[in-house]
Write a protein that binds this DNA or RNA. Structure first.
Lengths: 349, 349
DNA sequence: TTGTAGGCGTTATCAA
DNA sequence: TTGATAACGCCTACAA
């Protein structure tokens, strides 16, 4: 703090204009009606709607008074009464993760159109923060083993959860899962069968046992083959790394005919790298990713990928249903993956 | 929705375990004390702290009862009473923007250590959503002209705002501003004076009138020069684009001696591109960015950049002060920019 | 069609 | 050291 340069404004700027938040009572007084009437009007029981109904003239007076006072209902008080906050909370581990962002985007859009406010929480330890929160529905991005008991506890406390995780079973909360490794295997098999000479690009690429890279090695092994050194590019987190790795694979005389990138993000960088080498993706080299993201679909050429069908949209509507209470909680939503063949792997001419 | 594949669990999984949320009254009953006592204990007025003080034995009984019932205070009810939500809200226009993410990161960390929950809202139109929200402090990322009146309105309603914007004056809310163009000009002048042959890399690079690119052209014009075509690389949003643009500038016989990239993010990609060409950044070519981000500082070699001093940390503590009510609102915080010379531009050997 | 009044779960002010 | 009890702002059955 010692070094900051701050110029405070004169007292004038800091003058606290009377910030008395208008309450429903003040509106009622100003309109010459009771608080109940104000509440009716503002909850949308005008004339014509169902329920008691309020005279048009009264409605007008109330609206006017509320407007003049700049009245906005106190959400906290409303929540105490109704138990609803008109809010959905999205807990994501890493704000940088494009997949999480797509979920956020999808759920946010759906939420807004149902008059729910989407809020995001970025903390890999959601256990403490969620104790406090009071959203109508909470989405959780991923669950570490030690966090699993917390889920049940939260659910028992009445928090309505939707959890994205492959290792957890529903228990008072919804679970969304999706078999990514099976999907990856289908994609790799497909690439090998069609192109034969396939390379791997992704983090942990040299570990034949685990993850999306392991699937590649397993598929080769099953065919009695192993991956040559110049057919595997291990990368780290940064975008430049994916780009550079792709260059390494593709900028050689004897380049592979297809590239399996372990995420769409990586694949997109690979496409850019290939193009910078003057290669026509889909003809000179096939490139496929994992995740079936929008970014990949919109790429030129459109990216072949493997991913769950309709997952985003469905997660969004699950969240809305859970928030509005239209759906009993505790369901398991399993999304099979499938290959989405697009221009980036159009077969050998 | 028609196409989704969902397998619901059996009725067993959906069984609604009695989700009756324990209230403070139940805890009081179970512990054989009054609700007031429970409140004292749980608000941390144990023995030793200031205030009434509660007998150790009673404290123990209350804690036990609360634990057994799995009691958690109802935040909404608490907010009605106290007017505080123990929450700060960060409104960011684009979740993808690394600078916004750094603000989020900085404020979140500070908030957590003061027992405030940071929440993020991603919507370029914050006007409607903020009407509802009930945070103790709200940070706003950027203000479009038509949104300006909304600020004053919110402030008058008692919403405690901290606004980051160069075109707005405090008016019941705090303003954080920072003259980026002036800073950029200082950097460009510095680069031209030291290296003479400087190139420009960034979006809108060919527009000599506006933004961080315009500053570059203005600096040249003032010296009676103009930028040659191979000294300007216009790019678009994607990371690959920055990388490719940098290659275009640097992969020529007659390459520039320095590169002014209009953001740290772009500069980082440029450094990677230079390195992939075998150039030693800082010796063979100087590269500087804008924003003075952590990512740049941590880069190898560390990135020269221009940016505000201590802005992040100060914004974080402003938010905490505003949230806790320690500071009167309505201040103007102006951050001058300065050049941070680091290894990526170490002068000619 | 509108008003009265009770209660949601807390905290805070008193008095005991 | 603890307990009644009155708010906080809102919604809603019920009465008028």
């Amino acid at each position: 703090m010692s070094e900051r340069s701050v110029s405070e404004t004169s007292a004038k700027g800091s003058v606290q204009a009377a910030v008395v938040r208008p309450t429903i009572r003040m509106v009622a007084e100003r309109a010459g009606v009771s608080t109940a009437t104000v509440s009716y009007v503002l909850s949308g029981r005008g004339p014509g709607t169902k329920g008691p109904g309020v005279k048009a003239e009264t409605t007008r007076r109330v609206r006017e008074a509320a407007e003049e006072l700049g009245y906005r209902p106190n959400q906290a008080a409303r929540a105490v009464r109704t138990g609803k906050t008109q809010t959905v909370l999205l807990s994501v581990t890493m704000l940088q993760d494009p997949w999480s962002l797509e979920v956020v985007e999808a759920v946010s859009t759906a939420a807004r159109s149902h008059d729910l406010t989407p809020l995001i929480m970025a903390d890999d330890d959601w256990t403490i923060a969620l104790e406090r929160t009071q959203a109508d529905a909470v989405f959780i991005d991923s669950v570490r083993p030690e966090q699993r008991p917390a889920l049940t506890k939260l659910a028992r406390r009445g928090v309505r959860l939707v959890v994205f995780d492959s290792t957890v079973e529903p228990d008072g909360f919804d679970v969304v899962r999706s078999d990514d490794l099976g999907g990856c295997r289908t994609l790799v098999d497909h690439l090998i069968d069609e192109w034969d000479d396939v390379a791997l690009l992704g983090p942990g690429a040299t570990d034949p046992r685990r993850g999306r890279a392991g699937v590649f090695h397993a598929a080769l092994a099953e065919r009695g083959r192993t991956a040559a050194g110049n057919r595997v590019a291990d990368i780290v987190g940064s975008p430049g790394s994916a780009y550079a790795g792709a260059l390494r694979l593709l900028d050689q005389e004897d380049r592979p005919r297809a590239v399996y990138a372990s995420s769409d993000y990586i694949a997109i960088n690979a496409v850019h790298a290939a193009q910078s080498l003057g290669l026509v993706v889909g003809r000179d080299v096939a490139i496929a990713g994992v995740g079936n993201t929008l970014a990949g679909e919109r790429l030129q050429p459109s990216l072949t990928s493997v991913g769950p069908r309709e997952l985003l949209g469905t997660v969004a509507s699950i969240m809305v249903d859970v928030a509005t209470g239209d759906k009993p909680v505790g369901a398991l939503h399993d999304f099979p993956w499938e290959v989405w063949e697009r221009a980036s792997t159009h077969g050998p001419a």
